[in-house]
Amino acid sequence: MEEQFVWVTTRRLRPGTLEDFESAWRPGATPQGMRRAFAYWSEDGQEITGVSFWDSKEACDSWRASDPEAQRRAAMAPYVVEEREGFYRGRELAIPHS
């Protein structure tokens, strides 16, 4: 199975700011080297996890060091209470069929 490169970020948000946060969160253009991205949020709207798939760790690192990403993070900052992130390598698991 193909190895994948994934950046996962989980943010705890100030109450009632999910909609405003989502507007600030979306990049203006698709970052070079990003294949796919997903967002998952808690039922109360106070925690959001982003999962993005990249061509390589270098492509992700390049985006993270870019001016557009710095501007995006600055726009999100007023809504974020806590942030955790990590970069991972892995692959899809084969699920046995019964």
Rank of each mutant, 00 (worst) to 15 (best):
residue 58 E to Q: 12
residue 18 L to D: 06
residue 27 P to A: 01
residue 75 A to N: 06
residue 7 W to Y: 15
residue 64 R to G: 07
residue 31 P to W: 05
residue 30 T to Y: 08
residue 46 Q to T: 13
residue 37 A to W: 08
residue 98 S to E: 00
residue 3 E to R: 13
residue 1 M to K: 10
residue 31 P to T: 06
residue 17 T to K: 06
residue 55 D to L: 13
residue 84 R to E: 11
residue 19 E to D: 15
residue 86 G to C: 05
residue 17 T to Y: 02
residue 89 R to I: 09
residue 37 A to D: 09
residue 1 M to R: 14
residue 91 R to F: 06
residue 97 H to I: 14
residue 86 G to I: 02
residue 68 P to V: 07
residue 72 R to S: 05
residue 96 P to H: 05
residue 7 W to Q: 15
residue 26 R to L: 13
residue 93 L to V: 10
residue 93 L to C: 08
residue 40 Y to Q: 09
residue 76 M to H: 01
residue 15 P to G: 04
residue 24 A to P: 01
residue 74 A to H: 05
residue 52 S to C: 04
residue 8 V to S: 05
residue 65 A to G: 13
residue 46 Q to W: 01
residue 32 Q to K: 14
residue 25 W to F: 14
residue 17 T to D: 00
residue 82 E to H: 11
residue 81 V to F: 00
residue 6 V to R: 11
residue 38 F to N: 12
residue 20 D to A: 15
residue 49 T to P: 04
residue 61 D to P: 00
residue 21 F to R: 02
residue 75 A to C: 04
residue 20 D to Q: 14
residue 29 A to E: 15
residue 66 S to D: 04
residue 42 S to P: 06
residue 95 I to A: 10
residue 73 R to C: 08
residue 69 E to L: 03
residue 74 A to M: 06
residue 37 A to R: 13
residue 84 R to T: 15
residue 46 Q to H: 08
residue 75 A to V: 03
residue 21 F to D: 04
residue 93 L to A: 13
residue 84 R to K: 12
residue 80 V to S: 02
residue 77 A to N: 07
residue 7 W to N: 15
residue 25 W to C: 11
residue 48 I to N: 02
residue 9 T to E: 15
residue 71 Q to T: 05
residue 9 T to P: 10
residue 92 E to W: 04
residue 44 D to L: 10
residue 91 R to H: 08
residue 30 T to I: 12
residue 55 D to Q: 14
residue 40 Y to P: 01
residue 66 S to M: 07
residue 15 P to Q: 10
residue 93 L to N: 09
residue 90 G to Q: 00
residue 74 A to I: 05
residue 88 Y to H: 12
residue 29 A to Y: 03
residue 75 A to T: 03
residue 73 R to Y: 07
residue 30 T to P: 12
residue 27 P to C: 06
